[in-house]
Design a protein around this nucleic acid. Structure first.
Lengths: 145, 145
DNA sequence: CTCATTTACATAGCTTGCTATTTAAATCCA
DNA sequence: TGGATTTAAATAGCAAGCTATGTAAATGAG
């Protein structure tokens, strides 16, 4: 028993991440947590290319392509051809997309609150700091940064 | 900008979880991180039903069913019919499965080490404790516990 | 200017997660 | 005992992540 999951950072993190996603999706009833990073990035009316969105969301390009396809299908984003580069399109939120973004933020804030209520107030910044350091370490390992 | 991802517990946790999974999978080269909870549960030769495994791994029953199907296809687990309950089968690791489990633990320990190296030694237990409290809070919310 | 290289995106195919539903065996109760 | 209920697993279908590879436009080197 050299390996105990209760003290495996990866196991605990993966477990928590699934619970976070489920909690948000339960509140959105139909909506899902995948578009969240796109909502983040475009919330105040901006437009970005798919590549920029993938970078910001820290997902691979095909993952973002699929997410945007679903969002476009559901009327949440619009793609307008980039006049300067015919390979690219500028992605922006539709009015429906902005509405869903607001709803998603409400749910996310609620779930984050519920989770961080399990921490002492002074522990919360510590938690964010630890997470950011772990993320930085794992990105260094992947050489992707 | 009421919502900033750098201080969203869910966003950070999801991000870190993906990096953990990628880091382990990069090391396993072909093998993936999905069977990990099954490896955990059956590492010392035990046998369990699908339901018990799903409960332990904290995934839904169909998720575990799929994982076990892939593992069976790849020769990592064997299902032997339960003599007392014809609906059930006892799942156990094959010799190949045990071998892969060992390799997976090596990778997992390496990646966990790499991640927790980003924390001060005295912070590590604090991190596990925070994670366990957040997990408990989210499970309470889901009413699944 | 032309051809090679790079870049942005698309496509194919896989894993791992989920919900909803079905099937069949076991159990419970009248 | 026999019918209703519960339980274990299977199946269908979708989302979101990944890698590998293809395609077409833009860029750069001679």
């Amino acid at each position: 028993m050299s390996y105990v999951r209760e003290t495996s950072a990866g196991y605990l993190t993966n477990w928590a991440a699934r619970l976070f996603a489920r909690a948000i999706e339960r509140r959105l009833a139909g909506g899902s947590s995948g578009p969240m990073p796109v909502f983040f990035a475009l919330q105040d009316g901006g437009a970005m290319t798919q590549k920029e969105l993938a970078l910001l969301a820290a997902v691979e390009q095909p993952t973002m392509a699929n997410t945007l396809n679903r969002m476009e299908r559901d009327g949440l984003v619009a793609r307008t051809p980039d006049p300067n580069d015919r390979r690219s399109a500028r992605v922006s939120l539709t009015p429906l997309g902005r509405e869903r973004a607001r709803a998603a933020f409400v749910s996310a804030i609620e779930v984050n609150g519920l989770a961080t209520d399990a921490l002492e107030p002074e522990e919360r910044e510590v938690f964010y700091g630890m997470m950011r350091r772990i993320i930085a370490a794992l990105e260094r390992d992947s050489g992707t940064e």
